[in-house]
C-alpha cells in the first residue's frame, strides 16, 4: 500500500468515526459537553493501550490472546505492591516491568520454537488467569483507604478535558508511532509480518522482532491493567475478561490486517474511538452492561464481513480468485 492509498484508507475510517460520533451526539446531550468528551477519552485508555499492543503483534503476523489475563495479573500485582507499602509510581513501574519481561519471554519461546502464537497464548491465557487468582487469594485486592489520596492526581484534568491517563494514552501512541515508522527495529516488525520468508531471505532475524512485539504487547497490556486498577483503587483477578474482544475490534476497525504486515498506529487510534463512541453511546442510552458485549461482538462480526467481502470483490476484479471460484 503506498502512502496515498494509506491516506485514503485512513480518511475513510476517520469519516466513519466522525459519523458514529455525530449519530450519538444527535441523541445524547452529554456528547456535546467537555465533561462528556473527557469521559469518552478516559474510557478509551484501558482498551486503547491494549489494542496498541495487540495491533503490534498483528502487524508482526502473530497474535497475543493472553493480554486480558496478563492485565489482570499486573493489576493485582500493582495493588499488592501498593498494599506492601510501595508508593504508586514505583509500584506501577515494577509491575509493568514484570509484564514486559513476561511478554519478551513469550515472544522468545514462540520465535525459537516456531509454534503458532495463537495456540501458545491460549495456554498462557489460562495459566495467567490462574496465577492472578493465586496471588490475590481469589479475592479483589484494594488499595488501603488512608492511601487512596495518593491516587487523586489521576483525576486531575488539563483544560477540563485531558486527564493524566488520556495524556499517557496519546503519548504512548505517539512514541509507538515513531518507533514503528522510523526505527530499524520497528520496520523489522512490519517485515516479519508482511512476508516472513522474504524477510528471512533478506537477513532479518525473526527472533528480535518477535521478542520486541510480544514484549510491547505484554508491557502495554500490563500498563493498561496497572493504571486502570490504580484508578479504580482495586483489582479483581477475574477482571479484564472482555478486554481482548474490545482490543481486537478496535484494531480491525482501524485497518490492521489479520494476515500481518499492514496497519498504522493512527488507524488503531481511529478504530479505538469509533468503538468508544459506539459503546459509550449504547451505555449512555441506558443499556445494561451485557448489551455492551453484544454490541462489540456484533460490531466485530460486521467489520469482519465487510473486510472479507471487500477482499473478495477486489480479488474477483483482479481475477486472482477465479481459480478458487471455479467449479470442480
Amino acid at each position: 500500500m503506498n502512502s496515498r492509498e494509506t491516506f485514503t484508507d485512513l480518511a475513510i475510517r476517520a469519516a466513519l468515526m466522525v459519523a458514529v460520533y455525530v449519530v450519538f451526539a444527535a441523541m445524547l446531550p452529554s456528547y456535546h459537553t467537555v465533561r462528556g468528551a473527557a469521559a469518552l477519552l478516559d474510557g478509551g485508555v484501558l482498551i486503547g493501550l491494549t489494542a496498541l499492543g495487540i495491533g503490534i503483534t498483528m502487524i508482526a503476523g502473530e497474535f497475543d490472546l493472553s493480554v486480558g489475563s496478563l492485565a489482570a495479573v499486573i493489576g493485582v500485582l500493582t495493588v499488592n505492591l501498593i498494599i506492601a507499602g510501595m508508593s504508586i509510581i514505583p509500584a506501577i513501574a515494577i509491575a509493568v516491568a514484570v509484564a514486559c519481561a513476561f511478554g519478551a519471554l513469550q515472544g522468545f519461546v514462540i520465535a525459537v520454537t516456531g509454534i503458532n502464537s495463537l495456540v501458545f497464548t491460549i495456554g498462557t491465557l489460562i495459566g495467567l488467569r490462574g496465577f492472578a487468582m493465586i496471588i490475590s487469594n481469589e479475592n479483589s485486592v484494594t488499595i488501603p483507604i488512608p492511601r487512596l489520596g495518593e491516587t487523586d492526581f489521576l483525576a486531575q484534568r488539563v483544560f477540563g478535558l485531558l486527564s493524566p491517563l488520556s495524556i499517557l494514552l496519546f503519548a504512548v501512541f505517539f512514541v509507538t508511532h515513531l518507533f514503528l515508522r522510523y526505527t530499524v527495529w520497528g520496520r523489522e516488525i512490519f517485515a516479519t509480518g508482511g512476508g516472513r520468508a522474504e524477510a528471512r531471505a533478506a537477513g532479518v532475524s525473526i527472533i528480535r522482532p518477535m521478542v520486541i512485539s510480544f514484549a510491547l504487547s505484554g508491557t502495554l497490556a500490563g500498563l493498561a491493567g496497572a493504571v486502570s486498577s490504580v484508578r479504580l483503587g482495586s483489582a479483581t483477578p477475574l477482571g479484564f475478561d472482555t478486554l481482548l474482544l474490545s482490543a481486537v475490534t478496535a484494531c480491525l476497525i482501524g485497518g490492521i490486517a489479520l494476515e500481518g504486515g499492514k496497519g498504522t498506529v493512527l488507524g488503531i487510534l481511529i478504530g479505538l474511538f469509533t468503538m468508544r463512541f459506539l459503546v459509550g453511546g449504547v451505555a449512555s442510552l441506558g443499556a445494561p452492561y451485557w448489551l455492551q458485549s453484544l454490541a462489540i461482538g456484533a460490531l466485530l462480526i460486521f467489520v469482519l464481513i465487510v473486510q472479507l467481502s471487500s477482499t473478495l470483490i477486489r480479488d474477483r476484479a483482479t481475477g486472482s480468485a477465479l481459480l478458487e471460484l471455479a467449479p470442480p
Partner: peptide, 22 residues
C-alpha cells in the same frame, strides 16, 4: 469466506452470550 477462525468465533461468542443474557 476467509475469516480467521479464532477471531470469528471470539466475536460470535460475545454475540451468543449477549443474546443469551438479553
Amino acid at each position: 469466506l476467509g475469516g480467521d477462525p479464532i477471531i470469528t468465533t471470539l466475536a460470535f461468542g460475545a454475540l451468543f452470550r449477549g443474546i443469551a443474557s438479553l
